[in-house]
């Protein structure tokens, strides 16, 4: 279990009765979730169970069919573009595919969200923030490289640096260790925990990597058949006798 001493009682993400379907295929069915400030919550589920859809609904990339998603006191489905952008400044999103812009250098990738959200910022401040974000992931030497010149693990760390650059209060991690070797996976997991320590972030981590679950989660939400099937600590779930939960741990 990760360091749960950092959590407070303030609820920063509250999801109520969330439903999402693609045609006849129901992905999320009356899904509920409450996330406290400072908490690291892992959402564990099978591939295609709707984990990524869930966090895309949280950040407003997908519209739910029904239900409420309150993030930092604002109901995401009700927000217009401008208000949504204001909330998004406080939410970081680490994409499964990293989503680094191929045509831009690492520096430009990191500058992009800064210049979009904070238009009054000076070049010197931009430079400092870029270097600080790169220092966090220990990749300052890559600043003028293209994403294609980086390894998979380095790309993931650069993507994480880009996520961090706006100093978000909440970070959504979409499969942060998928496709990485065990050593690089461990580095990313350590980075997730270090970021939490340093910036006091709250996080939702989508994964099916049990090592990642064990080392990062305060609580684990089991996403089974579209709903919040069970929320408990990793240790409690690992000892569960419920066959639907056991299949993840056996």
């Amino acid at each position: 279990m990760a360091n749960s001493k950092q959590t407070s009682d303030e609820i920063v993400v509250k999801i109520n009765g969330l439903n999402k379907a693609f045609g006849d295929h129901v992905v999320l069915k009356n899904f509920d979730l409450e996330l406290k400030r400072g908490e690291n919550r892992v959402v564990l589920g099978k591939s295609g169970s709707g984990k990524s859809v869930l966090i895309k609904c949280i950040i407003g990339l997908m519209e739910p069919d029904s239900g409420a998603i309150e993030v930092l006191g604002q109901n995401i489905p009700d927000l217009g573009h401008v208000e949504l952008d204001q909330v998004r400044v406080k939410i970081g999103f680490l994409f499964q595919s990293n989503a680094l812009y191929d045509s831009m250098t690492v520096r430009q990738n990191l500058e992009f969200p800064l210049r979009r959200h904070w238009m009054q910022i000076t070049q010197k401040e931009v430079e400092e923030m870029v270097m600080e974000a790169l220092d966090n992931v220990d990749l300052m030497h890559t600043v003028d490289m293209m994403p294609s010149e980086l390894s998979g693990g380095m790309r993931k760390r650069i993507a994480l640096a880009r996520t961090l650059i706006l100093k978000p209060e909440i970070i959504l991690y979409d499969e942060p260790t998928t496709g990485l070797d065990p050593i690089t996976s461990l580095e990313i997991i350590e980075l997730i925990n270090a970021i939490r320590e340093k910036y006091k972030t709250t996080a939702i981590i989508i994964t099916h990597d049990l090592k990642c679950v064990r080392l990062t989660a305060d609580l684990v939400t089991m996403l089974i058949e579209g709903c919040n099937y069970e929320t408990a600590t990793y240790e409690a779930l690992a000892q569960s006798n419920d066959p639907k939960i056991r299949q993840f741990f056996d």
Binding site: K56, I59, L61, D85, R88, V89, I91, F93, F95, Q96, S97, N98, A99, L100, Y101, D102, S103, F112, P113, R116, H117
Partner: peptide, 19 residues
Amino acid sequence: ELGSMKVTEQIDAMEVSGT
């Protein structure tokens, strides 16, 4: 270009970045 940006989630990343 746009196709590869779409499948590698770069368009989503752009939207999340306030663009």
